[in-house]
Every structure is written in structure tokens, then in C-alpha cells.
């Protein structure tokens, strides 16, 4: 089953009626951990978990499309999410002091990156 794992409320609003959206108000680090846990259970990652060019944790939001299933671990997905967690670890959390307008811009960019991927499915 295809599931979008996200901490971006705009994804729920925009795609909630057409895709299965697993929204939870988690931190950037915790959303990556949630993805890793799903991979441990057998899920595959379909969209790259490293953001476009907005650096990890420069935005609080991350949305990743996954093929959810239980079974043997997809090693490509595991390598990808571990590399992403290691990469994100190099960046400080920048978004704590963002105002509403900037947070909204972050949501829109996250939505745009996912839209681009969903269009090519």
C-alpha cells in the first residue's frame, strides 16, 4: 500500500482524499526515525528522503512516499534512510524561530517537491 509519511499538515489537506497520508506532528529528526522504523518492518522508500536544496532542518517539514509492507528489509531503502539520517545530523535545527509566513513557505516547498514526484507516478 502506498502511504505518504509526513509531518506537514498541508500534505494531509492536499492529498488526504487521494492518497493514504500518515500525518503526525513530529520533529524533522523524528520523522526520519519513523521512516527508518517502517523500513525495518519491510517498507520501501519511493521518494528521496533528503530534501531538494532546502537543507535538512532548515525546514521543519518532510514528506516521503513509501510502499508499506511487512517482510524482509529492503536494503536499498535502509541504506538510503541511514545516509539521510547521517546527513541530517550535520545540520543544526534552524526552524525553531520561524514566523507563520515562513513556516507556510516551508510547507508549500515540501508540498511542491512531493507533487512533482506524484505527477510522475
Amino acid at each position: 500500500m502506498l502511504v505518504i509519511i509526513t509531518n506537514n499538515p498541508l500534505i494531509q489537506e492536499s492529498f488526504g482524499s487521494t492518497y493514504t497520508v500518515d500525518y503526525e506532528a513530529l520533529s524533522y529528526d523524528d520523522i526520519l526515525i519513523k521512516i527508518r522504523d517502517a523500513v525495518h518492518r519491510g517498507a520501501s522508500i519511493l521518494t528521496h528522503p533528503l530534501y531538494g536544496s532546502v537543507k535538512p532542518k532548515e525546514t521543519p517539514y518532510r514528506s516521503v512516499l513509501m510502499e508499506m509492507r511487512e517482510g524482509p528489509v529492503d536494503m536499498d531503502s535502509l541504506l538510503l534512510i541511514e545516509q539521510t539520517i547521517a546527513s541530517a545530523g550535520k545540520f543544526p535545527n534552524k526552524s525553531a524561530g520561524y514566523d507563520e509566513a515562513t513556516l507556510n513557505d516551508c510547507k508549500i516547498i515540501d508540498l511542491s517537491l512531493l507533487q512533482g514526484a506524484l505527477r510522475s507516478m
Binding site: 522508500i45 512516499l65 538510503l80 517537491l113 512533482g116
Partner: peptide
């Protein structure tokens, strides 16, 4: 350089 891994 796309987001979707299948595109890559």
C-alpha cells in the same frame, strides 16, 4: 534530478 527514486 527528480525526487521520485524511480525517476532517478
Amino acid at each position: 534530478e527528480n525526487v521520485f527514486l524511480a525517476d532517478k
